[in-house]
Simulated assay, not measured.
Amino acid sequence: MKAMVVGTPRGLDRLRIEDRPDPGHPGPGEIRVAVHGSSLNFHDYGVVSGIMPCGDGRIPLADGGGVVEAVGEGVHEFAVGDAVVSCFFPAWQAGPPIIGDFSGTPGDGIDGFAQEYVVRPATAFTRAPKGYDAVEAATITTAGLTAWRALVVDGQLKAGDTVLLLGTGGVSIWALQIAKAMGARVAITSSSDEKLERARALGADFTLNYRSEANWGRAIRDWTGGIGVDHVVEVGGPGTLAESIEAVRVGGHISLIGVLTGVGGEVPTAALMGRQARLQGLIVGSRADQQAFVAALEATGIRPVVDRRFGLEQLADAFRYEESGSHFGKIGVEW
């Protein structure tokens, strides 16, 4: 079967197509899935570019959407023909977090979904949302579930809350759609006025170009009448955290889900204490969280925003597009 693999030394130019052995028939508790689509995340870019360690010949991509071709003995949750989508942490089935690394994450610690077929435990997948194609389904595995957990599972979002989102990448656009569907008011930042216009079309209540407003935390606070927002989905890390703390209300919630500006830096601890805010780091979510997210998507009718789609052979070009920062929402890969 056809698979895309990571070379050594790593880099986008080192991605290559290989013929790999067909995974065969599923054993007890397993399913065979024909994979038809994926979506890109910064984590995937880190693996293929060399920012994050992985072994030579690793098959990348954490997200995978496809169709069940066969089920092993003892599998009753899925049947042949079912549309399914992968889980980021296959071993984390439910409950509080139990995993703090990527040793079991597809496309990192184990082979990912840039391949035609996989045989995995049935518990490594959930049902895909009804009506979603493979690429759309794959967008929920990492980005969608991260936004869902940040706002709903951990943030306990409710109608009337205010939310601040940074940028217009996959997590932020998913968070915008989730928040609006649940009756929240949303502010979003970007360096692109064109992207801010698109965010307004999706329901954003307040938009801000941070290139023209350096003190954007204060501007967001002013938008709330001086109170501050209830929730911040913080994707930047050390370079943006101070402004996010400025923007959050006393007793509010900041979900640290990304480190786009660096993996370490100064934290304004006095300001955080003064806000009495909860700063929570999180990485995606459990299988049970994903199942609840799928149910919510079917109930609300939300569809993901997929900016562009590439073929598997164009995976390097897809990552270059991600690298450019030109995308709005998710970047899809299909085959």
Rank of each mutant, 00 (worst) to 15 (best):
A181M: 10
F78K: 06
I283V: 15
P268C: 00
G27D: 02
V68S: 08
T141Q: 07
T105F: 08
T224N: 09
P53Y: 12
A201Q: 13
V75G: 04
G325W: 03
G50H: 08
A124D: 12
F102V: 15
F206H: 15
D161F: 09
L312Q: 00
A128C: 04
R249D: 04
S326Q: 11
G217Q: 11
I51A: 15
A214L: 13
T8I: 07
A299E: 05
I173K: 07
H43Q: 13
A295W: 03
G332H: 03
A91P: 03
E30K: 01
V248H: 10
A150N: 04
A150C: 10
R185M: 13
V248L: 08
E77M: 08
E323Y: 02
L260S: 07
R309Q: 01
R303P: 01
P90E: 09
G325M: 04
D307I: 08
G228K: 08
L272D: 02
A122Q: 05
G64P: 06
G112T: 06
F125A: 04
F42M: 02
D222W: 11
V71Y: 02
L196T: 09
T105Y: 06
P9M: 06
N215D: 15
L151W: 07
L145D: 12
A219D: 13
P121E: 05
V67M: 05
A128Q: 07
S255R: 04
Y132A: 08
I245W: 00
F310Q: 00
F310D: 00
W148N: 11
S103T: 15
F310T: 00
G203L: 12
Q93R: 15
A150T: 06
G104P: 13
A247G: 07
